[in-house]
């Protein structure tokens, strides 16, 4: 039996989608207990309730940020199922489909895949890619595995569940002026860096929020720790030859 937690519907169309999903799950024989998150009951509270009731699989029905919140609560205690709704691109790529019917069928076949996650101390979890995008070029200092220190200027920084840090920057180098009058034109300098480790400390100037699907999950300064093979997720069923 599955325990479904549904993200608050953002529109009437999403409410209708949820009704179609209920019918679909019933037809597949995997309709379980369905709970809708609301301001009165957060996704985390609902997930805790599901765990307390003994459910071994909790299904997140919603967007990427919602899926990440549920994963944070159930990690190490239950298997995560996902029905991506709306712009849940990362979740859809993870399980192998953005189609609700297909995702429901995956739940029925229950093929499990194990994924890494990252703990952002003290108690945040990064399961889907988290992004820092300051309004203007900002500085990040980092220490990787206690052995490598560095700093960089960035427009966008991504932290993945494999603790890969991707730092992107694009800035204009001031044009040279001739006789203080004529400029020869500026040059856009692009930089892309990629690091990875098991323990990473990130500090930014100024402090910035780490976002999953536009919602904050943590804030710098951050101590990040890789948790290998820490979350089981129901994903795409393999083909039968």
């Amino acid at each position: 039996m599955y325990y479904y937690i549904m993200e608050p519907p953002s529109s009437r169309a999403v409410r209708q989608t949820y009704q179609r999903l209920r019918d679909l799950l019933t037809n597949l024989g995997i309709a379980g207990e369905m709970m809708a998150a609301s301001p009165a009951r957060t996704p985390e509270e609902l997930a805790m309730m599901g765990l307390e009731r003994g459910y071994s699989t909790i299904v997140a029905v919603g967007g990427d940020a919602f899926v990440n919140y549920i994963a944070q609560t159930i990690i190490g205690q239950a298997v995560l199922g996902i029905i991506p709704i709306g712009e849940a691109q990362q979740s859809a790529e993870l399980i192998g489909t953005n189609n609700m019917k297909t995702a429901a069928e995956f739940l029925k076949f229950r093929r499990l895949s194990t994924f890494n996650t990252v703990t952002a101390d003290p108690d945040s979890l990064i399961f889907l890619d988290a992004v820092v995008e300051p309004p203007k070029l900002a500085k990040v200092s980092f220490v990787i595995d206690g052995k490598l220190r560095g700093y960089a200027y960035f427009n966008k920084m991504t932290v993945t569940r494999n603790l890969e840090i991707k730092i992107e920057s694009q800035h204009l180098v001031e044009p040279k002026k001739f006789l203080g009058l004529f400029s020869t034109g500026g040059t856009v300098v692009q930089s892309l860096s990629q690091f990875h480790g098991r323990n990473v400390r990130l500090t930014t100037e100024p402090d910035l929020a780490l976002l999953v699907d536009g919602r904050p999950v943590a804030k710098t300064p951050l101590q990040l720790r890789l948790n290998p093979n820490s979350l089981k997720v129901i994903t795409k069923r393999g083909s039968i030859l």
């Binding site: 220190r149 200027y153 800035h171 892309l192 690091f195």
Partner: peptide, 17 residues
Amino acid sequence: METNGPGTTVGVNVALS
């Protein structure tokens, strides 16, 4: 820093020690 990851790239505006 040792891992089986995708490799490391140090961009042009990065300084490491």
